[in-house]
Nucleic acid binder design. Structure first.
Lengths: 326, 326
DNA sequence: AGTTCGACTGCAAACGTTTGTAGCTTTGTG
DNA sequence: CACAAAGCTACAAACGTTTGCAGTCGAACT
């Protein structure tokens, strides 16, 4: 029913190849012919069938975007930025949600492989070896985790964690709890490593809790474990857990920041809206989305380029962190 | 490089058509042949090329999902539910963001048309006529707005608005302001209509403000217009505007709900997290996403089925609404 | 024994494009 | 005026599938 290249060719009295070139290699066709073809194409509402084109060119002009949880407020800005950036380059975006399940991740990459020119793997929970293996089937760019031999864009969350610990130290806190995130997360390990280092450098005590699912409920559920550590300040794996924790603490009659300071990570839209507003480490998620798309489209075919883009993070001081109670 | 159906055929010593049937019509091939083919296919890592398949069958097993703004917290739960539901039925989902621009909407539907079996159009800003026209190119299901002659899933936001007005009336409020949303929004008109009716029935005064962009900033910016109306309670187009408004009021030294009550719509994840927590009308977004996918896949080909699914809404009373100050 | 049937498999055309090659004009050059 | 070059267009094969049709073969029926 929809017009094909053949319809356009017939109507405008030229061969299909001429119509094809009118769109994909304009300089090879006589301007007047081209004008005529374009006119008829317009009139018939012709649009090239990208799937058919992909079949022969091998380029689909689609990309895949795989995230752990669309509803986690960390991701929407990244998705939005990536989609918009990709569309500006005439690419469409498949979005899929793994529910934090590594098995689903793998299946998804494989299922998408033939339909896309590459996949953005955001915060994957798979092993490096698995990712490495998948990258033989389809170009990958990893976000939020470096994988040896693969292009990746990461945010310097170690620096952020250090800044957070230093901030808390300056406020007089001597014992900090680290509310850990999910097991497979590279960010989680990185935060832990860096916070440990920073705490040691400041002569502080650091108690690590976790691993935990990176959700609000999980943060709330950890409120009493946090209390039991005796820490006066908490650095949480992400904003979601931080606000959950604050809620949980409130329910136990503890107020933030008067009795305990809480610092989040990600600076999601949330953090400005909660009361108290959340001190947090800002990660440039939109920029990460754009950078990842760029990397994917840049090295079109020469995969296994091992570029690594690192984006800086920043500590945003708001109301959930305050002086250590005595 | 990746294995094709021909590779599998060669290796397992059968014709390509047999391999094809092994996957798409198993009952037509001898179980033992089938087993052998499957084994070799597995071994070669063969996966049918869906684009090639689509070319001949006309079914892509993809759907498009077009929303106004991915970062608006209303949408992620809908996207997540729709994607997960679709994938359960072996469909992949293109997600695209229009930035509230009707022109982009149209372009996007057209661009996606050949690559999908149908498009979910969420909260479109286009005219009915435009939507109607697009539906001739590709099956559409509209979400959050009824369009004559097209399948749609809507949420009964009129009922929600009525409940909200009644709730405020019971709290003693006699003058309510309606903080309107974007121009093209059907929901906006519906809310307005229903709130007006309910206010009249209760003998209340209702002042309508707007149209406004449906964002937090826009809500905040309207704080003084709201004050000038002299209303003691506000019903906002959505949660985002409601929390923005509360912020704006706070900045003017007005407290919620003591001096003014504020009610939102959508019950986004936000509304539980702000202080005060937000009284709001809950819209079942995840259910809407699933229902829309079902409708799209159900009437596969017989478009122009004019089914309309209406989902109920519910008033969630939290802390941002209180008794009318005297 | 001949026929019919069913189960299975192969053949080849088709889906809507792109692209290398070859052919035809026209123009420029010596 | 002949010839080459340049500019343009047509032809046809290819991409990886599906699918209607026809063919083969053995079993079951008459």
């Amino acid at each position: 029913m929809p017009a094909t290249i053949r319809d356009v060719a017939r109507v405008s009295g030229v061969h299909v190849s001429t119509v094809s070139r009118t769109f994909s290699a304009p300089h090879l066709v006589n301007p007047s012919t081209r004008a005529r073809v374009l006119e008829f194409a317009e009139q018939l509402g012709y649009r090239p069938n990208r799937a058919a084109r992909a079949l022969i060119t091998g380029r689909t002009h689609n990309i895949g975007l795989i995230v752990a949880d669309i509803a986690n407020p960390f991701f929407p800005p990244l998705i939005k930025a990536a989609e918009s950036h990709a569309r500006g380059r005439d690419y469409h975006v498949f979005v899929a949600d793994t529910n934090e399940d590594p098995g689903v991740e793998e299946e998804l990459v494989l299922a998408l492989a033939k339909q896309v020119d590459g996949v953005l793997l955001c915060s994957p929970r798979m092993s490096n070896a698995q990712i490495e293996k998948l990258s033989r089937d389809v170009p990958l760019v990893v976000v939020n985790r470096p994988v040896p031999g693969l292009p990746a864009v990461i945010m310097d969350v170690a620096q952020g964690a250090r800044l957070a610990v230093e901030h808390l130290t300056m406020l007089g806190h001597r014992h900090i709890a680290l509310l850990g995130g999910p097991r497979g997360s590279w960010n989680n390990r990185e935060i832990r490593r860096s916070a440990t280092l920073a705490a040691r450098a400041a002569g502080n005590e650091l108690t690590v809790l976790g691993p935990n699912p990176p959700t609000e409920e999980s943060g709330a559920a950890q409120a009493d474990s946090v209390l039991r550590t005796g820490a006066t300040a908490v650095l949480a794996y992400n904003d979601l857990m931080a606000v959950g924790l604050i809620d949980g603490l409130n329910r136990l009659g503890i107020t933030v920041p008067d009795q305990i300071s809480v610092v989040g990570i990600d600076d999601t839209a949330l953090s400005r809206r909660t009361r108290p507003t959340l001190t947090t480490v800002a990660t440039p998620t939109a920029a990460a989305g754009r950078a990842a798309v760029d990397m994917l489209l840049q090295h079109g075919d020469d995969r296994r380029t091992t570029a690594l883009v690192t984006l800086q993070t920043e500590l945003i001081i708001r109301d959930s962190s305050g002086p250590c109670p005595k």
